[in-house]
Amino acid sequence: MIFPGATVRVTNVDDTYYRFEGLVQRVSDGKAAVLFENGNWDKLVTFRLSELEAVK
């Protein structure tokens, strides 16, 4: 189960963010908004829950 605050990895091989890890900001309607941070940039991207896996 994916909840806000969880760290997730993108599993969709066709996505630009494949294998990126980010922090879930919100979850609704089968989608999750994931925040990616890297140095001087932040990006908030929405994914279907089926495209994400929780990082242990």
Rank of each mutant, 00 (worst) to 15 (best):
D42M: 15
K43N: 09
A54T: 10
E53Y: 05
T16A: 14
T11D: 03
R9G: 02
A32D: 00
N12P: 04
A54H: 10
W41A: 11
E53S: 06
A6P: 01
V27N: 02
E21A: 06
V8C: 04
A32K: 00
L44H: 05
L49A: 03
T7G: 03
A33H: 11
G39E: 09
Q25R: 07
F20H: 10
N12F: 04
L35T: 05
E37R: 15
S50H: 09
E21L: 12
E21W: 07
K56F: 13
K43D: 09
A6W: 09
N12M: 06
Y18A: 04
N12Y: 05
L49C: 07
A33Q: 14
T46G: 04
L23P: 02
F3P: 04
E51K: 02
L35M: 09
G39F: 08
L52E: 01
N38W: 13
T7A: 08
V45Y: 05
R9T: 07
D42N: 15
T16K: 15
N12S: 08
T16R: 14
A54D: 06
F36T: 00
V13C: 07
K43P: 05
F36Y: 02
W41D: 11
V13I: 12
Y18E: 01
E51W: 06
R9F: 06
E51Y: 06
I2F: 07
K31V: 13
M1V: 09
N12W: 04
P4Q: 07
F47H: 02
K31F: 14
G22H: 00
V45R: 10
S28W: 15
S50C: 08
M1H: 12
G5W: 03
A32Q: 01
G30W: 04
N12Q: 06
V34R: 00
V10E: 00
A54Y: 14
G39S: 10
L44I: 13
G39H: 10
V10T: 02
G22R: 00
G5R: 02
P4R: 07
L52W: 02
A33G: 05
L52G: 00
G5C: 07
F3W: 09
N12L: 08
V55Y: 05
G5I: 02
N38R: 11
D15Y: 04
T11Y: 03
N40S: 12
T11Q: 05
D42P: 13
T46H: 08
F36W: 02
G5T: 03
T16E: 14
S50L: 07
V8R: 00
M1A: 13
L52Y: 02
N38I: 15
D29Y: 08
T16D: 11
V10P: 04
G30C: 07
S50K: 05
R48K: 14
V27Q: 03
F20R: 13
L44D: 03
Q25K: 10
K31W: 15
K43H: 10
Y17A: 03
A33L: 15
L44M: 08
K56I: 14
D14W: 10
V55G: 03
E21T: 12
G22K: 01
A54S: 08
Y17H: 09
I2T: 02
E21V: 14
E21Q: 09
N38H: 13
S50T: 11
D14M: 11
D29K: 08
S28Q: 12
M1S: 13
T11N: 06
N38T: 12
D29L: 07
G22L: 03
N38P: 08
N12I: 05
D29G: 11
G5H: 02
F36E: 00
Q25Y: 09
L35Q: 07
D15T: 11
N12C: 06
L49Y: 05
V8M: 01
W41V: 12
V45N: 03
V34T: 01
T7N: 06
T46F: 12
V13P: 15
V8T: 01
N12T: 08
K56L: 13
Y17G: 02
G5F: 04
D42V: 15
A33K: 07
V24Y: 00
V13Q: 11
W41C: 13
R19D: 12
D14K: 12
D42R: 15
K31Y: 15
V8E: 01
F47E: 01
T7Y: 12
A6M: 14
Y17L: 07
T7D: 02
E21G: 02
V27T: 04
V13Y: 07
A32M: 02
K56Y: 13
V34I: 08
A33F: 13
A6N: 07
V13G: 07
F20V: 07
V10F: 01
A32N: 01
E37W: 12
V55P: 03
F36L: 10
V13F: 07
Y18R: 02
D15L: 07
T46S: 09
T7I: 13
T7P: 05
T11L: 07
V55F: 06
K31E: 11
I2A: 03
Y17S: 03
A32F: 03
Q25C: 13
